[in-house]
């Protein structure tokens, strides 16, 4: 595991993972993108529910695909709300492009322009009478003029492949279409960081795959994309880096392969080993996959390796 958060002490020991001297810091990521968003020692408590997050450290780099993986109620959504500047942390600091989060109206506005959040339920986000108007909501609020707004809306709709829905009322759309509209609405603000809460929940397998591909393309164009999910197979298939949630903290953070090798840690967190990863690892250990290859991330890749190996 090449990154382990310093605050994860007790759980890390319990899980048997090796501590690492490399604290998650600013600067350049392994992939080379600049650090766009950083959290240090973040803590939060709701008045009714008590503490939900404690000592969370996380850094995020341009063009990166990060998955926040954790069971329901582990605090993923709260962390997203904090990163998006919609909740104020009780302790710790948040930095965007190296600048701490200010409290002035102007600073808040700049933060919201830079960090976009897509909610889990698209119905929480779609309020305008047509798709076009809904997607234009963000750019207009940013102060774009009509021409620029139109351009941004068109670009966002095209990026999500829903240009043909522009004039439709959101309530007439299917769930998958609504989901895409809600993402377009955030994308039209051209954020540097795109946070998505359970983006594939409720989508059928094909829609899931399409959406994850779209998100990968976004990351490739330089946006840092963060996906919160409890589906480990998705995390394995898609992530550059995984932050594992448990007991109100990020318990481990690193490349998928390192994260999923720690079975006892996954069990402690009520999570499962991704199926494809588990199978591939066991086959590789048994010498049934050709050596020297990274573990396959897709079913097709596994099958093709398997046919080479046997």
């Amino acid at each position: 595991m090449d990154r382990l958060d310093p605050a994860a002490g007790p759980a890390r020991e319990a899980s048997g993972a090796r501590p690492s001297p490399d604290a998650s810091g600013a600067g350049l990521s392994p992939g080379g993108g600049a650090c766009v968003l950083e959290a240090r020692g973040l803590g939060f408590a709701y008045p009714e529910a008590g503490e939900v997050l404690r000592g969370v450290d996380l850094s995020l780099h341009a063009g990166e695909r990060l998955v926040l993986a954790g069971a329901n109620g582990s605090g993923k959504t709260t962390l997203l709300l904090l990163l998006a500047g919609l909740l104020t942390p009780r302790e710790g600091t948040l930095l965007c492009d190296g600048q701490p989060r200010g409290r002035s109206r102007r600073a808040v506005r700049a933060w919201h322009s830079r960090v976009g959040l897509v909610f889990q339920d698209p119905d929480d986000q779609l309020f305008a009478p047509t798709v076009f108007e809904d997607v234009s909501f963000g750019p207009l609020n940013q102060g774009c003029d009509a021409a620029l707004t139109r351009q941004r809306v068109d670009r966002a709709l095209a990026a999500l492949g829903i240009a043909d829905l522009a004039e439709r009322p959101p309530h007439s759309l299917s769930f998958g279409q609504k989901k895409r509209v809600s993402i377009a609405g955030v994308l039209a603000m051209e954020p540097g960081v795109l946070l998505l809460d359970e983006p594939t929940a409720g989508l059928d397998p094909e829609a899931c795959e399409d959406l994850l591909e779209t998100l990968a393309a976004l990351a490739a164009s330089g946006t840092a994309v963060v996906v919160a999910t409890h589906t480990m197979d998705e995390a394995w298939a898609w992530a550059d880096r995984i932050a594992l949630f448990g007991g109100q903290r990020i318990v481990a953070c690193g490349p998928p392969e390192a994260i999923f090798r720690d079975l006892s840690l996954l069990e402690t967190l009520h999570l499962r080993e991704p199926l494809l990863f588990g199978v591939a690892r066991r086959l590789a250990d048994a010498g049934l996959l050709p050596p020297g290859h990274p573990l396959p991330r897709t079913q097709a890749a596994l099958f093709s390796l398997l046919s080479q190996g046997t």
């Binding site: 500047g85 919201h112 339920d121 309020f127 909501f137």
Partner: peptide
């Protein structure tokens, strides 16, 4: 719940950045 999350999502998209908005 709907109102709360709706307002949050609007805030995230700068819906309350000025009085007219």
């Amino acid at each position: 719940h709907c109102l709360e999350t709706g307002r949050r999502s609007q805030t995230a998209r700068l819906g309350y950045a000025s009085r007219s908005r």
